[in-house]
Amino acid sequence: MNQRKKALFNWSGGKDSALALQTILKDNQFEVISLLTTINEETLTSSIHSIPIEILSKQADSIGIPLHTVLFAKDLKNYDHRMRETVEYFKKQGVTHFIFGDILLADIKTYRESKLNPLGIEVVEPLWDKSSSEIMDIFLTSGIKTKIIVTQTDKLNHTFIGKNLDRNTVNLFPNEIDICGENGEYHTLAYAGGLFKKEIDFSISEIKKIYYNIDLDNGKTKTVTYWQAEITVPTHKF
């Protein structure tokens, strides 16, 4: 019997991460020793989905794989340094592969390989090279439950925040958006079913409008606006 290769799974907390990890665990070629999530050190939320670190920890506990978090400055000035430290830390534990849940964006895959391959790490993309419609069909039969927690305001309005990503919701999507949100149209939080042993308890207390300034290659700056759920972690009284 071939020994499984040690891997680190890059965990966003959303649907693609959950589906990619479930796929990897079923395939059983890799020993996933940890989940890795990048965290905004000011807000203590994940850097893209803005999921609180408490929820990310609950996800990891429910899945049964430890969570390793890396804190970054808001302007990402320490990103490369922190990631190099992280790679070296896990290489000492025998990790040879980093796994991601990307689907279609070739520039992101190329970027990951350009950063990790020179450090002796191979990139694995279990969902890669399938169409968004194929991935959505697989997701909808995976048993994984997710809620939409972020939408780009010019793509999906605020009424989508808090909806479960199911067939009924997908049928409401405008035709012009990517069905999996590959262009940033929406992000999700995975909370139950599939690879989760117990449901993650959370609530949405508020929906905020947030703004990101993106520096373009031509030297100009583009402002992108999002609707974002304010995630509340329940406090249990004993």
Rank of each mutant, 00 (worst) to 15 (best):
E230S: 13
N40Y: 12
T110W: 10
K26M: 02
E230K: 14
S17T: 09
L36Y: 05
K115G: 01
K58G: 01
T37E: 05
A190G: 02
V87W: 08
H68N: 14
Y226K: 13
Q3D: 14
L119G: 05
V32N: 07
R82T: 07
I207A: 04
S57K: 15
D137T: 14
V123N: 01
H97K: 11
I135M: 07
T45F: 04
K130G: 02
D154R: 08
E54Q: 14
H158M: 11
K147T: 04
N28P: 04
D154A: 07
E176S: 12
G219I: 05
E206C: 10
E206H: 12
H158S: 15
F238W: 12
I231V: 09
N117A: 10
E122W: 05
F100P: 01
K26F: 01
F100N: 06
K5E: 12
E85A: 09
L172V: 00
W227R: 00
I138V: 06
Y191I: 03
L140F: 06
S17K: 09
I148L: 09
E54N: 11
K145I: 00
W227Y: 15
G193Y: 06
Y191S: 03
E41G: 07
I51T: 11
H68T: 14
A60L: 05
F72V: 08
N40K: 08
I48T: 13
A106C: 08
F173S: 03
S203E: 12
K145F: 07
D107N: 14
I207D: 06
N164K: 15
G101M: 00
D129K: 14
R167E: 15
G13T: 12
T86E: 07
F30W: 09
G193H: 01
I207S: 04
T169P: 05
E88N: 14
T23V: 04
K58L: 11
K58F: 07
Q93P: 02
E113M: 11
S142Q: 03
N218T: 04
A7F: 03
L189H: 06
K58Y: 06
G94V: 10
Q3M: 15
I177F: 02
A18G: 10
G184T: 05
A229I: 05
I55R: 00
H68A: 12
N183A: 10
T45G: 07
T223K: 13
K26E: 08
S142K: 02
P234C: 06
V124D: 06
V124C: 10
T110H: 12
F72S: 05
K209G: 06
I200N: 11
S142Y: 02
D154K: 06
